[in-house]
Design a protein around this nucleic acid. Structure first.
Lengths: 337, 337
DNA sequence: AACTTAAATACAATCGATTGTATTTTGATT
DNA sequence: AATCAAAATACAATCGATTGTATTTAAGTT
């Protein structure tokens, strides 16, 4: 209808009231009388006024937008975290700019630049598997925007981490295999440059140690834990003809391995028991159902966002990191007795 | 370091060059000599300059941001569509503001307002299950921003739809059950106010008709197709003691029904054959594996985004709607012979 | 050397809302 | 009716980048 959207100046002219008053009225400032407020609001509706957030953001230096970086949106764990993020952000009046790094550092850097340019009020990020230095986060903290790392923790300045206790969860998972009689347990691990995967490996090793099992380097894999990797590792393990348990640092690889083993006549859990990580919806449906670590994905998104926004809104120092609790879901893939 | 970020004016002052020249240099305008360009770029880097997109967007009236509305991010189909959207947007230099309607019209309206306020350049939306009128999209088209509806088509003004042929896919799915000997086929349908679900039901009815089967209203369900709904419908069907086939308009309900039936001693596909819709990753893993319609989810996201951006960038009229192809994936849940 | 033209740069307005300060209006008080 | 404080409104600068127009500089021509 009206070309180019109505502005407060259109309302101002239409009513013969200064635009500053119009602005204040629309923001419900006490400095404007109720009578004029009513007039202004009525006219605003009549003209189909919609605040131009660009102008507002420029002036106030606040965008009410949170940047979210995720390795890959379509992974169930991450999309559920995003749900939690979006939900909380929505409640508190924030928008969510979502980007995926696809596990690439280069892409992550570009994304950070864009988010800085767009002056998002804060950043929620799960770093890529290639991210081992953190200089590219500097521009962010430089202009005073807080960062919260979720899932994959990061030791950058005084930033908040929202994670689970990966060491402990791993320890429990591995011990569970041991208590079910496994003696030669393989570990499907992720990139050891990432703290998260380091911790998972450490937990695995600690459990072996506690129960007097020897740690064998040959049983420790390190890769991206994709479905392809899972099948490949299963194949390698079969050749070894010795492994009787697998603890995988994610479900994707675990599920893929399980299917590979099943298709090759290996009995799960009798011959090889398997524990995964993440509680992917598939893990509950596959047969045998996969024992796995349940992470509070949705909750993690909510917590991270709540803390980020708290930090954005009261500029007093960093909030503390949080460790959410996880649990071992025992299912058929480990029930040997 | 520098409080409050460097601007082109800081660069301008530092070099004694007018800010307009600085701006043009940073935008690589031919109006600036290479010598000064180099100087400016060097200084910009030295000062850690990052363009303030807010200011730029305000001036140019272009945000390079696309609004994306999705019913629920954590559904595999949608998160994969989003992947395709993000991927394409990233390539073309656009950001993606993602919001979920959670199938609520009220929320959808609020989201649209926010997106208009943020002056996104265009909108990609899969409408909520409650959306039956489209007046709330008016502000959007009013200021000239194009809209592309994906998955759930919409007859609003001259907007582009990116969908599959739901009628045909449904027809194929239902016919497949008939050819496998089913005589009493139930249909798990979604809200009939939504064109998508209407079309799916129509395809089902058409297939029955073609093969001389009677359409029974009692076998036609209409709800949100959640997991809970799926189990409830399975229960109802069992009581009827007559149904030998189910065609569900989504996998969520189909899978839930399958599990319910299995747990209650019903043989799938021998007693009841099932076809789903969406090719959710679970459908391939569940036993028996679920016959389903594979939709080009990632591709749908890419196509929708490509078309939206094309429309944003050449303001010449609406691009045409597209119908992507889908396929019936025959798996064990329907193999009766 | 004077002159023309093109190239490079500077000036100044603008996008739309916000906000500190100044001015006007209102109403209460004596 | 005069006075004064408080309430309401107007004025004007500002956020940072962009862009049309004006001015200066450089280079080429005769």
């Amino acid at each position: 209808m009206l070309k180019g959207k109505t502005t407060i100046h259109d309302i101002s002219k239409a009513l013969g009231i200064d635009s500053s008053t119009v602005s204040r009225a629309l923001n419900n400032s006490p400095r404007v009388s109720n009578t004029t407020k009513a007039k202004i609001i009525a006219k605003a509706e009549e003209l189909g006024y919609q605040r131009n957030s660009l102008a507002s953001n420029l002036r106030t230096n606040k965008t009410h937008t949170i940047g979210v970086v995720v390795p890959r949106i379509s992974r169930n764990f991450f999309s559920t975290v995003i749900s939690g993020i979006e939900e909380t952000a929505y409640e508190k009046g924030y928008n969510v700019l979502i980007c995926q790094s696809l596990e690439s550092l280069e892409r992550e850097k570009k994304i950070i630049n864009t988010l800085v340019s767009n002056r998002v009020d804060g950043l929620l990020i799960s770093i890529s598997m290639q991210t081992t230095s953190f200089q590219h986060f500097k521009p962010f903290s430089d202009y005073g925007a807080p960062i919260v790392f979720y899932d994959r923790p990061c030791n950058f300045e005084h930033c908040t981490n929202v994670t689970i206790d990966d060491f402990e969860a791993s320890f429990k998972a591995t011990e569970h295999l041991i208590l079910n009689g496994c003696k030669h347990i393989a570990h499907f691990g992720g990139p050891q440059a990432i703290t998260l995967y380091q911790n998972r490996k450490k937990g695995y090793i600690a459990a072996l140690k506690k129960h007097g099992l020897v740690f064998e380097d040959a049983l420790c894999f390190e890769n991206q834990l994709s479905a392809k990797d899972g099948a490949a590792m299963a194949k390698t393990i079969l050749k070894m003809d010795k492994v009787d348990g697998i603890y995988s640092a994610n479900d994707t690889a675990a599920i893929s391995a399980l299917r590979y083993l099943k298709n090759n006549g290996v009995a799960v859990p009798e011959d090889i028991a398997i524990v995964g990580f993440n509680n992917d919806p598939i893990s509950a449906v596959i047969e045998p159902a996969l024992t796995t670590i349940n992470q509070p994905d949705f909750e993690m998104g909510k917590q991270a966002t709540t803390r980020l926004i708290a930090h954005i809104e009261n500029k007093n120092g960093p909030t503390n990191s949080v460790i959410l609790s996880s649990e071992l879901l025992v299912r058929d893939s480990t029930k040997r007795f």
